[in-house]
Design a binder for these strands. Structure first.
Lengths: 335, 335
DNA sequence: CTGAAAGCGCTTACAG
DNA sequence: CTGAAAGCGCTTACAG
């Protein structure tokens, strides 16, 4: 039998209303009463039951996290981007110390109404989502009136009520290509994954193309789906065969793959061959030579999103935010 | 107003007991009744409220995840080990499709009774914990009667009721050092973090020392606390100055740091200098040259732990498991 | 199979 | 400030 408000009330010699008031901070009570209640609670080892509270307040103090719909084994581990985002969200929540993170576990290719069910069933107070998602799911989310904050999602023209945190992806692509051009490279390939399905990757590509056009240079597109590092290795082979002198990769792990293969082929990356990635994940400074890349401040991105959600929850900020974080080039050893 | 069992019962023309029975699978009811209930539920958009259910069944269908107590910004992102573990846990839960993962958000240096409070408050059905934890917390966990499965924790002699999933760390250290010796290296340094606070690291060290002793070689210990990659870089400088010809790093990110710095110093790693890591995280195959390491099958480890917890929850397996996963050497380019 | 009833632990008006 | 009462949405005996 767990200790309940009734037990605490009895022990402290007050009503259970008072106990409830002390714990929630509502209503009025004297300092003496407060102390007596807290003491009794401590003595008995009282722990408020959040499920019971949730039932009546209709709040769960839970933030639901939705990972990209195409998540599969190895997505988390294979793309350091997610780790950093998770890290930042965890830190913000930790300091807020009142919302726990709920990671929905949903069957692989299940229909997306399942997620909707779980969101309702768990009664989460807000949603944090990363990446692109099925229109079904987003449409459903729109009918609920909990705040939704999306990271790296480009549906902002469709859903006005959601909040969006994005980076200036087009600018990033532009800066990357421009940097390579300024370094003297002329045959600059683009390496990308999911170019058809990801608006974000498309924007990075557009930036690249704009820079090339400004300088009258031809574009070389290498696009395919697959795991980032492995595809980077494969793209490198193609780039090498075609005699290009530089590559812009729309995500860092692709660049790590390209670098790996180029070194294996004996190509002096950073001299004869220029390479720029995108994201600025930690590994870019850990490989040798260090990879030049577009810093999109991943940690701040997650932080910004989590703080935005918390603010909306606290009603200190209106929903429907459109936040676009700046990017900048970090020139290191590969270009 | 949410749709409740009462509404569904009315719509389906049955009692709410029957509705409840259909959803929980308990009790008896005809196929026709079942269909009628499900149809009514679907029509009204009924979603069972888990908080209400939890209140009465005393089950939450929530698995609590406890990260290492020393977690800080960058721990997740800085140590790819966690990503893979998380990935595997997520996958197991996803296929089970009924337990969600709860990540507690706890204030930085808060006293650990807080975690206990949250565990009670959320009423999690089971706990998955990674790494070492304060005796306070473990002692508290022992008083609860929910299953606890620990990964990479060496308190198995103190707590009989917990289940443990570990790797053969001592063997790993032994295999790593032995491999370097067989390759002809003689002055083999050990690079480690947290040697004082982590039994796991100590075991890896012991294995290393045993191998050296067997061959009458001297040990060189480099131990310090800090972020793995950065410390690897610093250790490399010391190793270089002292003229050692090989290093065994008790975790891969340390080896990545050593490799990075050695390449910078122009040392041909894999020839004049031998290097072996521990963990077999993905990055060891992504850097160039690829790092030889001890594979501890991280993914399987997380999977094993999650499955064990689920089995104990389902009562198909007794708690108090002691699982020790094998390790093996993966020889690549650095030794 | 069904229905009325009790109760999980909590909060919220409301009358004092 | 306090206490009695109602109720959140659900499940679980229990008598039919």
């Amino acid at each position: 039998m767990p200790v309940t408000v009734i037990d605490v009330a009895k022990e402290a010699g007050v009503s259970r209303t008072t106990v409830s008031n002390v714990f929630s901070g509502h209503g009025k009570f004297s300092e003496d009463t407060r102390r007596a209640v807290l003491e009794a609670a401590h003595k008995l080892g009282y722990r408020p039951n959040l499920a019971a509270r949730s039932l009546i307040t209709n709040q769960s103090r839970l933030i639901g996290l939705i990972l990209p719909s195409y998540i599969s084994p190895n997505t988390l581990a294979g793309t350091p981007f997610y780790n950093t985002i998770l890290d930042s969200i965890y830190m913000v929540l930790r300091d807020e110390a009142y919302y726990d993170l709920l990671v929905f576990s949903l069957p692989a290719q299940g229909d997306h109404s399942l997620l909707g069910e779980r969101i309702d069933a768990r009664n989460v107070d807000g949603i944090l989502a990363i990446g692109e998602h099925e229109p079904d799911l987003l449409g459903y989310l729109e009918t609920k009136d909990i705040p939704v904050v999306l990271i790296d999602n480009y549906s902002q023209d469709t859903y006005t009520r959601f909040s969006y945190v994005n980076s200036d992806d087009a600018m990033g692509g532009y800066l990357a290509a421009k940097h390579l051009i300024e370094k003297g490279y002329r045959k600059i390939g683009l390496c990308a994954l999911d170019l058809n399905s990801s608006p974000l990757m498309r924007l990075r590509q557009e930036g690249y193309q704009r820079a090339l056009e400004e300088h009258g240079l031809a574009a070389y597109i290498f696009a395919h789906n697959g795991s980032p590092f492995d595809m980077g290795v494969r793209f490198a082979d193609q780039i090498y065969r075609q005699g290009l002198d530089a590559a812009f990769c729309t995500e860092d792990m692709l660049a790590v793959g390209v670098l790996h293969r180029m070194l294996e082929l004996g190509v002096p990356v950073g001299k004869e061959f220029g390479l720029v990635g995108f994201d600025n994940v930690q590994i870019t400074t850990q490989v040798y030579p260090q990879i030049s890349t577009i810093d999109q401040q991943i940690y701040q991105k997650g932080e910004t999103a989590a703080i935005a959600l918390l603010d909306i929850l606290k009603k200190t900020r209106e929903p429907g935010l459109r936040l676009k974080l700046p990017v900048h080039l970090v020139a290191r050893q590969t270009a």
